[in-house]
Amino acid sequence: MAKGVKPRVKVPKTAAAGEAITIKTLISHKMESGQRKDSDGNLIPRSIINRFTTSFNGQEVLDVVVEPAVSTNPYFEFEALVPEAGEFTFTWYDDDGSVYEAKKAVAIA
């Protein structure tokens, strides 16, 4: 697991049934592109978050293939439907095989 990786997620705590909500996510990750060289001229190996997914109660919202052109500390903002009370699951997949997960519950107001 890469050092110091920490996810942040912003989701409203409550929503009306069927409401569209805005979600913002960010994870601290260096997103080493594989294009850079170290001070000795050796290529620094690629080490990135290569996929990010969001689901709600097991149903898919978004599935993103992430390439090295995405900035350090990758950020995604998108909109999701909340059909009923439940839980969002956010998952980030690291090149090194690590998987980082964050969950957020939403109640129906």
Binding site: A20, V64, V70
Partner: peptide, 28 residues
């Protein structure tokens, strides 16, 4: 990104619970 060493940036697939087919991110 047509001028980057590798042009691919993201490919976003939208599921049934996407409220809009939109996404915002930050790129190099």
């Amino acid at each position: 990104a047509t001028g980057n060493p590798t042009p691919e940036v993201i490919t976003a697939k939208f599921g049934p619970l996407a409220a809009a087919q939109s996404v915002a991110t930050r790129i190099r």
